[in-house]
Design a protein around this nucleic acid. Structure first.
Lengths: 178, 178
DNA sequence: ATAACCATGTAACTTGTTACATGATTAA
DNA sequence: TTAATCATGTAACAAGTTACATGGTTAT
């Protein structure tokens, strides 16, 4: 259900073709809800069948430009204000961490070191992404830009936290070995 | 693939029946990798077919006690040390946040306030959980206890970060309105 | 002309959810 | 004796991935 919303949400910001959305999914959206080309195109057809979006134009190479409808905006609003039907949260990384006691301690250490390095790399990637988007913190920025930046800031803080956590666990492991 | 590992990981800690594992999934494991009863039982059969676990005993009411095999430990170890095949990370909460500009600002504010409150409540819940587990930070704690505490600490830091973030975004929204 | 990119679609498969179905054992 | 809990299974569906398939357009 959430991919449906992700597509709808992007079309709520501005009209575009499946290919346009695909590029957005490869860039910003992939960080919060990745989707494949295959899934996206079939979801757009379903959204159009359901009247939540409509085709406004067919360009060269069969390019279909979609626009959100009133019904689509209503559905998006409904989802935004009701988190009760969200799919359950799953994280393979957290699962691995939960089971870290099951591998030799030296390998667990290496995993934690890798986690810390990965967090650093993610921070660098997100900073580069922020620069490339050309969004500004200025007071005249629109809502989309404001919340886009806020989501990105969330990612930055998450990775900073993760790096600190991994380094602290490593320190505690050292203390234990003595 | 990850549910397979979640079940395998629990059986690596101690043998148990499908029903035993189900209880663990409802409690601790649900935080990192929720699973339904249906999925768990069929996964256990697949694991047994593949020789990664084995039935050591059949009790009353057809209760089957499973134990991890050598092959199972090898598979678990392989997964633990290779995150490259992890399923992509998805979060409906992050998606909602990303699209927060699509609803009226007063409703977005309420959502952020709720996020901050929820983070506080989670911290209280995790602190209570930590106390109830009776785990200690002492140097003689075993690996499972040590990493269990580390995972819990991760949760505490995550929610602290989330609360701070939500409050900061609310402050920035206030600044923008002036 | 040919490589890169634009543009969409379909089929087979895996993973996860919901609902239903069955029956044994234990505690009040 | 009856309600709660123990204990497992199956079928239909929804969501997501991988691989394949087709062809138009633009830039070098």
């Amino acid at each position: 259900m959430s991919l449906r919303i992700a597509a709808l949400g992007l079309l709520a910001q501005r009209p575009g073709s499946g290919y346009d959305l695909l590029k957005l999914f490869e860039n910003s959206m992939a960080n919060v809800w990745p989707a494949t080309q295959s899934q996206l195109y079939s979801e757009l057809n379903k959204l159009a069948d359901g009247g939540l979006i409509e085709v406004t134009d067919i360009g060269p190479r069969g390019r279909k430009v979609y626009r959100i409808t009133t019904a689509g905006r209503a559905e998006l609003h409904r989802w935004m204000t009701d988190p009760s039907a969200d799919p359950p949260f799953r994280s393979a990384a957290l699962l691995r961490l939960f089971l870290l006691g099951q591998i030799p301690q030296e390998q667990a250490r290496r995993h934690l070191e890798h986690t810390a390095e990965h967090a650093q790399a993610e921070i660098a990637r997100l900073l580069a992404l922020r620069d490339s988007l050309g969004l500004t913190d200025s007071p005249d920025a629109d809502d989309d830009a404001f919340f886009g930046l806020a989501a990105l800031d969330y990612g930055l803080r998450l990775n900073a936290m993760q790096g600190e956590w991994a380094r602290d666990v490593l320190t505690k492991l050292d203390d234990r070995r003595k």
